[in-house]
Each structure stands twice: as structure tokens, then as C-alpha cells.
Computed example of a mutant assay.
Amino acid sequence: MIDTHVHFWNFDPVRDSWINEDMKVIRQDFHPKDLLEPYHSLHITGCIAVQASQSEEENHFLLSLAEQNEVIKGIVGWVDLLDPNLGDRLNYWSNFKTIKGWRHILQAENSAFILNPKFIEGIKLLKEYSYTYDLLCYHNQLPDIIKMVDQLPDQPFVLDHCGKPDVKNQDLKTWAENIKVLASNPNVSCKVSGLLAEADWKNWTEKELFNCFEVVFEHFGAKRMMYGSDWPVMLISRPYEDWFNLVHQYTAQFSPEERQLIFSDNAKAFYGV
């Protein structure tokens, strides 16, 4: 099994200022060795390490971890897609085969950034290098994400954290409508990950999460869904095993072949691992 969404960092209170006092449990360093125990008990054999900092230095940090830890099967890094010399940067990074794709923290950007023609041209260039692109956004940004994706029908995308629906308040109607539209693009997949951070961290219910699962599994289907944990961010709510068991429980309704796709084969095909 492959966990398609984990982060590693040496905690820096300035750089990682998004990790506030309410998130004390993750205001510390997290390295691959910290995942080995839950992975072993759950028979998870590999992960995709996703950027948490927007710098090329982050790519080298993740690459150094991957060299020392075979559990890291691929990396989603960061590169400045607005860089006039983007082609040169992609040529450079193409020497590092562990880097499978890229991500920008679009949840922190506005509509003008997401729909900037130069940004979209930057994403268009990724296809030449067989790179994937992870979409990180809030539910209210999905209309802009749809407009962007519509211009890039040949680029493999994956939506992180189901597009961050409002799990806590269960205001899911507009989100669900946008998920349906986004999923109509066959080049877009979805990670079932990250929802604990959007819920009431300590008081969520299984039904609240399953309401979200139902929407993404209905529209993306087993062939375009991937398991991810969003570790260690998810630790603000529950231990790793709790999230895994929740997804495992929900997907019990699917055939063994479909579960194999969700927990392994889709990730291997998408990221080329």
C-alpha cells in the first residue's frame, strides 16, 4: 500500500508559522523514521513526500531524506511556475528521478494568481517532463481551479484533501456540485486525505467524514481515488491508525480489485513509482 500524502520537516517557528499554538502536537520535527511503526503495523510499504515549504531548498531536503529512507517512493516538490527560466529549472530537476511532480500552496493565493495566464503556461510546461501536479485549495476556490484545469486537458492533476470541504459545518452542497464538475475532467484524480484538519478536530463524527467520502468516490470512482494520510498534520486530531482504519472501513464496500486501486495501483500509475 502507498500513502500518497505525507510531509517531513525540521520545525522552524518562523518558516512554519502556519503551525500555530493550537497545533502544538506538530510543532516539532517529523522524519520518515517516525512513520515506520504505523506503516509496519498497517502493511503500508511506501509514501509520497509532499512539499510543505515553498522553496527549491525543500526539494533538496526531501531528496536527502529519500536517499536515506527507501519508504519514500516519490516526491512532490516546489518550483516557481512563474519563473521566466522555468524550462531551465525543470531541466535541472529532471536529473532527480524521485521527484514525480510539483505543488504550489494555492489555498493561500487569490483568483488572479490561480488564473494568471503565465501560471497556467508554467503548468502546461510540466507535461513535457511527465510531471504531475497536486492541486491544493479550499472548497470556495474550486470554481477557479475548474477554470484553470479546463485549460490544461493533457496535464495529470490530483486534488489534495478532496478540495478541503467544510467538514466541520457540513456545508457541502456547493462543494459537491463543484467536485462533480471537476471530476468530469478525466485527467483529474483525487486524494482521500486531509479531512481531519477540516473537521472539528476532537469532536468529529464518522458520518460527517463519510458524507464527504460519498461525494468524491461517487464522482471520481475507484479508478481515480488514492489513499493519503496528510501525516503529520492529521495528528492534530487523531493517531495515524485512526484515519487509515476509517478509510479502510468506508472502502470495505468496494471489491478487492477496487481497493487495490485506491490503496496502491492508482498511486503507482499516477506518480510512476
Rank of each mutant, 00 (worst) to 15 (best):
I72M: 01
D3P: 10
K33C: 07
G194E: 03
N110H: 04
T174K: 08
F220A: 06
D150C: 08
G77E: 09
L65R: 03
Y92T: 07
C137V: 15
L159R: 00
E21P: 06
E70S: 14
E58V: 04
F113E: 00
K97N: 14
W231H: 08
W204R: 03
E206I: 15
P256Y: 07
G122I: 03
L261C: 07
D200E: 15
S17Y: 15
Q28T: 10
L152P: 08
L82R: 05
K73D: 03
Q170E: 15
G87L: 03
N266M: 11
G221P: 11
V188F: 07
F213H: 10
Q141G: 09
F30L: 06
F157R: 02
L159D: 02
P232I: 01
L235H: 09
K202G: 04
W93H: 09
L136H: 11
L125H: 11
P143E: 00
I44G: 13
I72L: 06
L159F: 07
V167H: 13
Y138G: 13
V149C: 08
K191M: 08
V14Q: 15
K202M: 14
L182W: 04
V215L: 05
S111V: 04
D22Y: 05
Y131T: 11
R103C: 05
L182R: 00
I2K: 11
I179K: 01
E218S: 10
Y39D: 12
T174Q: 10
I2F: 15
V215K: 05
P32H: 05
L209H: 14
K191F: 01
A267M: 08
N178Q: 05
H219C: 02
I145P: 06
E177S: 04
S111P: 01
V215C: 04
